[in-house]
């Protein structure tokens, strides 16, 4: 157990980078930045409270749970492992993440899964404007609504939304949901621990009209 009210952030992360144990509890994060950033061992970290920017940034192997809200860029560029936010996540949750699973039990703000590169993001509530911007690979599942400009300039990432989509960004279109997609959603919901009917989700992805630079690319 490490109390950030008494222990400096540096000492916490130094310990987590070369862990003596396999389970940690972090108290009093109070919006601190870079909490549990850069982990690379299969440890479990329970953070009791709200965290600031870049919690579990570049996470590899570790299982990090935030019992509170997360600030900007939670699990940014995650490589593998599991990051779970029990509350809401701020902007750019899971930005550029390459692997692993990010679960946000509440809602995620703008730019959720921006430039996603292969990780999975499952959000219990809504996702904010410009989510999945330039998302390259991986899956984003929103059990609530999606705000404006979903999937703008999206590449090969797949986005599933259960509720309403306010608007789609450039080159993002709704796509047919086939059995393999329902199975994919079911597996992600199960991994995240949400009980929704996979048949309630609609799929969005790239129309691939911006893949080649032509005179039609004015927007």
């Amino acid at each position: 157990m490490i109390d950030l009210a008494r222990t400096p952030l540096r000492a916490l992360n130094r310990e987590l980078h070369a862990p003596a144990g396999d389970a940690y509890e972090v108290l009093n994060p109070r919006g601190a930045h870079a909490v549990a950033a850069g982990l690379c061992h299969a440890v479990a970290v329970e953070i009791r409270g709200h965290v600031g920017y870049y919690c579990a940034g570049m996470n590899q192997l570790a299982r990090v749970t935030v019992h509170g809200n997360a600030g900007v860029g939670v699990a940014e560029n995650m490589m593998s492992g599991l990051v779970r936010v029990r509350g809401d996540a701020s902007q750019s949750a899971g930005a550029t993440a390459h692997g692993g699973l990010l679960v946000v039990e509440g809602s995620a703000s703008m730019r959720c899964g921006t430039s996603l590169k292969g990780a999975d993001v499952v959000v219990g509530g809504d996702i904010g404007a410009m989510s999945a911007f330039m998302a390259q690979a991986g899956r984003i599942v929103a059990c609530g609504d999606a705000a404006e400009a979903l999937g703008d300039s999206i590449y090969e990432a797949r986005v599933y939304v259960r509720g309403k989509v306010a608007s789609l960004g450039a080159d993002c279109v709704e796509k047919e949901v086939r059995d393999e997609h329902r199975a994919e959603v079911a597996a992600l919901l199960a991994a995240a621990g949400f009980e929704h009917d996979p048949r309630d989700f609609r799929r969005y992805g790239s129309a691939r009209r911006l893949y080649h630079f032509t005179r039609g690319n004015t927007y």
Binding site: N13, H33, A34, Y54, Q91, T96, R111, F133
Partner: peptide
């Protein structure tokens, strides 16, 4: 950058990079 804009947020990004790489 996808997760910061401006010098105030860059300061936090640099802190994160230093924390990840143990300074």
């Amino acid at each position: 950058h996808p997760d910061w804009t401006g010098p105030d947020d860059l300061a936090i990004k640099i802190l994160e990079l230093r924390e990840i790489t143990d300074w």
